[in-house]
Write a protein that binds this DNA or RNA. Structure first.
Length: 643
RNA sequence: GCCGGCAUAGCUCAGUUGGCCAGAGCAGCUGAUUUGUAAUCAGCGGGUCGGGGGUUCGAAUCCCUCUGCCGGCUCCA
């Protein structure tokens, strides 16, 4: 007999060799029907596999991430089966589950796939799913595995097998399709009730741009049709919120082919928001001892040779600008930090001055590959809400906490209440990728870990994601429709102080090297705006929105009163304008609604007599009439709500 | 950069297998209308069919090339 511990802590006894499915059955029929895979001692496996020893067992159903992942992985196999049935002779790369669904890479040979071909594959998948074919696991020897795929002529699977150890190779077969796969899989195809293939795209074999481009098909599947419908509705919603669409509609920013790809141009309304964001951050930073600076947009090439960026990125950057006579070379600045290091170097520093916090909304230029450009979230010219903190090693943790606090204030203000922090550490296996001593790296990584623990931040740790000069902490936020984005970043750097020979005089009258922290709570104004637009769907909170209200007179007779309302409100720092156009009020309201102006003030004879306004809120409709004084109070309350 | 797709008026889109002066709605302009909570009516103007080259008696439509955009891949100091 073996003892199995369940998630609730209870323990039950079973015969050794019992399958996960039978354990589930012993609990309830419903569970047995819904279990997709089991996690035994933290290892996910098929429900049909025997359990031989004592341990903990977790049942993964659709409600668990593990369950979804198993379900989607099995769906990828079903997809491959359908593709093979419709396109005989194709070869397969890999087909994993991802966050939202699955994909499979296919070598179609002479064939090609377009979006129009997908419905036929979906249909085939559902047809095969209804056969309720079991996913049958089989352990095979390496020799047999090679033999199978040699006969099939699938060099991709052979290459995968090449990297596996004999004795650890398994095949899974469902219906007429067999795949190299370590599993686990759901019991049978019958639970896959709804399928949608979403995208066709190219993907390099093994992510290597020198190797063959395969056709990747992305899809998602569900145990219920209703869930697919909901998912598609969510995708629809995301499309509506697309910042590129809203940015154009609300006239926040634009691009111009003549100016160049990836070079955003901020229009007056976008700029108004941008300035309010910057003012907010500047005020918060001033409270925390930051000093603003301005540095030029270009710098001598040697500056970046010194910083190490030239060696690392020089080839892939905008190339140097040359002066006409002396042939000096200048680079568009890709970063602000070398300039800020020179500010630190401007004069000697005592330990008593530290930490020194230098902030700049610094516009930088980076050559992003043409295929990378995407709205405001990936551009070639952008403004970082940058700052560099120069401190002693002993101050590192406290400064880190200070930055964490600032970041939290910023996220709260913006309405991002759900976030995690990702700690990116170096990969000890590839030390050649990193600059600086092991000792310094250890200390920096420890400072980040300690600080996040001290404030009880929810964190995930990623090995190998560190920057080349130091470990970092990135904030991952969840937006209003549940998507994750990476926002601000905090990075510890021992490297630049070394390269720029930064020094301060300690209490011992000796020279010491300061530590540097790079940080940007927004990340960049451009990227942050893109996320904010999609998070709010263009309905910015009152304190941020470029036009807080519009006055709509019912006829031009009341234009003068309308202007006096605007003037009165301007005194209270409430900004808006009168819509003087000769249009019906229905039309003016419609346009204000579509422009997402939060407040419409309709005025006519009654309002003029009573020094009042009739208030309509965007998306909510008419909320009644109030005097101007009452409106100012109402506005302040609404503004607080939005914060 | 790579693979695939797309590019018609300011915007959203029609334009059948190459064939008369390339269309619609919205926006714009002019005029009428003076409006009470999501589109008032009428008239008018507007397009080198993304740029360049080619095939053809004839190209928005077919081919090449450049630019830009979209979906991915790779990359992201």
């Amino acid at each position: 007999m073996i003892q199995l511990t369940f998630p609730d802590g209870s323990i039950r006894e079973y015969e050794a060799g019992i399958s996960g499915l039978d354990v589930a059955k012993s609990i309830s029929e419903g569970l047995a029907r819904n279990v997709l895979s089991v996690s035994f001692n933290g290892q996910t496996q098929d429900t049909g596999l025997p359990i031989e020893t004592n341990g903990t067992i977790v049942f993964n159903t659709w409600n668990e991430d593990e369950g979804k992942s198993t379900f989607w992985h099995s769906s990828a196999h079903l997809f491959a089966e359908a593709v093979e049935a419709l396109y005989p002779g194709v070869k397969f790369g890999i087909g994993p589950a991802i966050d939202q669904g699955f994909y499979y890479d296919i070598d179609l040979g002479e064939e090609s796939l377009s979006l129009d071909d997908l419905p036929a594959i979906e249909k085939k998948m559902l047809e095969l799913a209804r056969q309720k074919n079991e996913y049958v696991r089989k352990e095979v020897s390496k020799a047999d595995a090679i033999k199978y795929f040699e006969e099939k002529g699938d060099e991709y699977k052979l290459e995968l097998i090449d990297g596996l150890e004999d004795g650890q190779i398994t095949f899974y077969t469902q219906g007429g399709f067999t795949d190299l796969c370590k599993g686990p899989h759901i019991p049978n195809t019958g639970s896959i009730k709804a399928v949608k293939l979403l995208k066709v795209a190219g993907a390099y074999w093994r992510g290597d741009e020198k190797r063959k481009m395969l056709t990747r098909v992305y899809g998602i599947s569900f145990p219920k049709q209703k869930e697919l419908t909901q998912h598609l509705a969510l995708l629809e919603e995301a499309k509506k919120r697309d910042h590129r669409k809203l940015g154009a509609e609300l006239e926040l920013f634009m691009f111009s082919d003549r100016v160049g790809a990836g070079l955003p141009i901020w229009l007056p309304k976008g700029q108004a928001i941008r300035e309010r964001l910057q003012k907010f951050l500047k005020d918060e930073q001033e409270k925390r001892g930051y000093k603003m600076v301005t540095t030029p947009h270009i710098g001598k090439k040697e500056l970046y040779v010194t910083s190490g960026h030239y060696a690392k990125y020089g080839e892939d950057s905008f190339q140097p600008i040359k002066t006409p006579k002396d042939n000096e070379e200048f680079l568009l600045k890709p970063m602000n930090c070398p300039h800020h290091c020179e500010i630190f170097n401007n004069r000697p520093h005592s330990y008593k001055e530290l930490p020194i916090r230098i902030a700049e909304f610094g516009t930088v230029y980076r050559y992003e590959q043409s295929g990378e450009l995407h709205g405001l979230s990936r551009v070639r010219g952008f403004t970082q809400d940058d700052a560099h903190i120069f401190c002693t090693r002993d101050q590192l943790k406290e400064e880190f906490l200070n930055v964490l606090d600032l970041t939290k204030v910023v996220l709260d203000k913006m309405g991002f209440y759900e976030f995690t922090a990702q700690i990116s550490l170096r990969d000890p296996a590839t030390p050649e990728k990193y600059l600086g001593s092991t000792e310094n790296w250890d200390a920096a990584e420890q400072a980040i870990i300690d600080a996040t623990e001290e404030v009880g931040l929810k964190t995930v740790t990623e090995i190998g994601e560190a920057a080349f000069y130091g470990p970092k902490l990135d904030f991952m936020i969840k937006d209003a429709i549940g998507r994750s984005w990476q926002l601000g970043t905090i990075q510890v750097d021992y490297n630049l102080p070394e390269r720029f020979e930064l020094e301060y005089i300690g209490s011992d009258n000796q020279s010491h090297r300061p530590v540097m922290i790079h940080r940007a709570p927004f990340g960049s104004m451009e990227r942050f705006m893109s996320i904010l637009i999609e998070h709010t769907a263009g309905k910015f909170p009152l304190w941020l929105t470029p036009e807080q209200f519009v006055v709509i007179p019912v006829s031009e007779v009341f234009n003068d009163y309308g202007q006096s309302v605007v003037n009165e409100l301007a005194k209270k720092d409430i900004t808006g304008k009168v819509d003087f156009r000769n249009e019906t009020i229905g039309k003016k309201i419609r346009e204000a609604e579509m422009q997402k102006i939060p407040i419409m003030l309709i005025i006519g004879e009654k309002e003029q007599e009573e020094k009042a306004v009739s208030v309509r809120m965007q998306g909510k409709g008419d909320i009644g009439s109030m005097t101007l004084g009452e409106f100012v109070e109402f506005f302040e309350v609404e503004k607080e709500k939005g914060e």
